[in-house]
Nucleic acid binder design. Sequence first.
RNA 1: GGACGCUUAGCUCAGUUGGUUAGAGCACGUGCUUCACACGCACGGGGUCACAGGUUCGAGUCCUGUAGCGUCCACCA
Length: 913
Amino acid sequence: MAEITKSYEPREVEKKWYAAWLEAKAFAGKVELGKEAYSIVIPPPNVTGVLTMGHVLNNTIQDILIRRARLEGKSALWLPGTDHAGIATQTVVERELRKQKQTRHDYGREKFVEKVWAWREEKGGIILEQLRRLGASCDWDRTAFTMDPAYSERVLHVFVELFQRGHIYRGKRMVNWCPASLTALSDEEVIMKPVNGTMYRVRYRLNDPAGKSDTFIEVKTTRPETIPGDVAIAVHPDDPRFAALIGRTVRRPIGPAYDMLIIADPAVDKEFGTGALKITPAHDRTDYEIGLRHKLPVIDVLHPNGTINELGGPELAGMDRFAARKKAAEMLKEAGALVAEEPYANNVGYSERADVPIEPRLTQQWWLRYPKIEEAKQVVRDGQIKFYPERWSKVYLHWLENIQDWCISRQLWWGHRIPVWYRKGLDRETLTEADLQNPAIVHVSQTGPADPQNWDQEDDVLDTWASSWLWPFATLGWPDPTEMKKAGFDYFYPTSTLVTGPDIIFFWVARMIMAGLEFVRPGEPVERRIPFKNVYFTGIIRDQQGRKMSKSLGNSPDPLDLIDTYGADGLRFGIISIAPQGQDIRFQEDRIESGKNFCNKLWNACRFRQMNGEAGDNATLGGITARLERAKFDADDHAILDRLLTTTREVDRCFAEFEFSAAVQALYGFFWNDFCDWYVEVSKSKLQSPDTKANCLAIQDLVLRQMLLLLHPFIPFITEELWQLLGYGASGRFIEETPLENASQLATASSGGGLMLDHAQVAAVENIKAFVSKARALKADHNLASRRDVTFFIITGDREWALLAANLAKITRMAGAAGLERRETVEGAPATVTTLGTLYLDLASTVDAGAEKIRLQKELDAITKHIAGTEARLANKAFTDKAPAAVLEGARKQLADQQAKRAELGRLLTALR
RNA sequence: GGACGCUUAGCUCAGUUGGUUAGAGCACGUGCUUCACACGCACGGGGUCACAGGUUCGAGUCCUGUAGCGUCCACCA
């Protein structure tokens, strides 16, 4: 057995074991029919991504679940991969090109896409390497990528299927246009931001056949640069202020001359602004709808990149929309049409990726009518899919209630090109619904037309989410039966648990559920079609100021640095300990440090065990329990094993309820306080005696072995190392190959040979602990160092003395005492009242009677207050009548104890006078 | 405008179904290099559980309201 070093050095240990695990293919997800399957698909990070604290949390949790599943004897699969992240990746590569003063158009579509692939080969997937550093036990041989040829085929297959099932259509509609990325976006990719802008109050002179009207109608707008696209003024039909004006016209004040009709439409809010609304159908959703109702023309004054086009008039043409806004305001002023401008805060939709305001824009796009909406609601409502925390199901359901068709086309080059071909020379703008169904004009298939020379493929690609929504089954070979068999589809689908952030509940979670229900195992019960059974939503990691950690803010520490400083296990333990279920996490590096400290503590406890020598068969649980000598069990032995069972049970419960931070806290508390601070310390006297040594070591082995197993999912590296060093496993076997005993199995195992754990001993030990604490405090109060040269005296009853005498060696050791002697009387020594008698410090000559009095009086005051409270409760008839017997009994006992203590304190004080 | 979450020690947070004197980590103070660990040990100080009502024998915990912070959804030009 290699000797354990003084402190834990993670670096080499992590490297060594990760390599060993990979070498042995320990993470391979295998179909093992005798075993229960447990599977997780990773939320695929962007192929451009680097590891963030969010990933650390998310993937640590997945690894915990997977490793625990292995320990529970399940066949576990954690399927990794990356997402091609259309806009993000294309942007990254275009940025590289821009450095060389080039654009994607210099290369053309095919060459550019090649460039992206080359970039991906060289720099993509860094994040997967980083996950290995974290210890992620993914089945790397299955690593998937949404642009892989096989995966791509599945994406196109789904498009064709949905088209044939009538869920996909093409249409000219208002979309969210990103002028930076030059593509349409789905509603989910638009985030609303409050913006401080200006509200312009503009007046329009009414046209008068006589040519001398001095009547005006006023509107308010934040976007004067779109006025050249105005085609009408709308008022509410019931608004008496404007009733007389409906049907008249006004002259557009700037831009090409145009007479706009004043129309009535109920969409206008009478209360807002002036009550009159300028209608710019090309640049506003509401205006567009009003325009449709009134058959108004659509005048688009913007280029796709957000500059004004020639329809905006010569003064504005070519200007950026924001510059044009100022210019338009000036022009209005000159024309006498600007009545007022005032600061105005409103919400503006921004492109999530490019962080620029989006433009509503009328374009031809491909749309999806979501399939299986009702069923998707049902499976969550009925609990076939369970959300943790449960409250997210409400958010999910609300979104599904109000769901809109999904714009799935993107005007990008990097992505799955939509498998639609148009007959050469066809005008795509004017295609009708019927044309789309006509195979002579439009071809829709996975493989394309037989005579490609006569066709042009659709230029658009699919939204990235329109590929990743298939992730749980497309990564398992679906729909190809051979591939599915190879991947173990039947065995691993539906997956067990999805671990993700609530921020992608709409983007991804909801859509995967609908996709699974639509495509997998049609006709079978929902339990077989859903993509996962549980969804665990992590919290969002925030910085000290409560801001979301993000790359752009630069407020996220680099997890790799944290791994270097604290070890992967320290980072994992730390992050989990501050991540309660369902709450956002305020990141604190000192918690990561405390994770590292815990690892070191674990390391040293095992080191202590090792230094006490080998004691027999450690390689199996049976070997260890066979070494237990039941006849020699004392209170501490009973208590520590009882607490071990309690802790094991608590961790079981935590896993059942996805309460990982509670599990970590239970393990931390048990190991540090109960085991290290108490049991190991009391062991030190037992280990001196040949009579008690063997049993004590067997108990330590039992505890350490179980702790390593329980801790392994959280801190895999150090537990593997210690497991091997202490020889708990069969040689050549990893810790994960050892089945983890649950609490009752462990109880049965350790009770072989007639041992019954005595729960009452836990209380006895607590009693002794409290007594030792009192003794230590008495010493500390008199500024005595922890040297063992003090003698304590005690005045106590026979029963209490019996308990003390039985534990004398450990008490004196733990309290740092030369001895503890029973006396009938003690004079002039500092004292303290304990539940086991009045304890005196043998230092009479050095005692300051005044200070003693103050100290005792403080204690007396405190206990008197408590007694008053307890008495009041017991004096309350309602309490004694209605409280349960156990509570009542507890209160009475408490009162008796408190009174005894007060009497003793009073006596001590009197003696000092 | 709608929904949800949070408010407990200086800081970050636990606190299961209401029940003895509300806990942890960090920070702070004092003392300890005690033969596993100073990445440690011991002892200690520190909280009217946001506020106001209510239910109850009993409320940090349940109910109602208020305030502040945060998130999501919708959005009016």
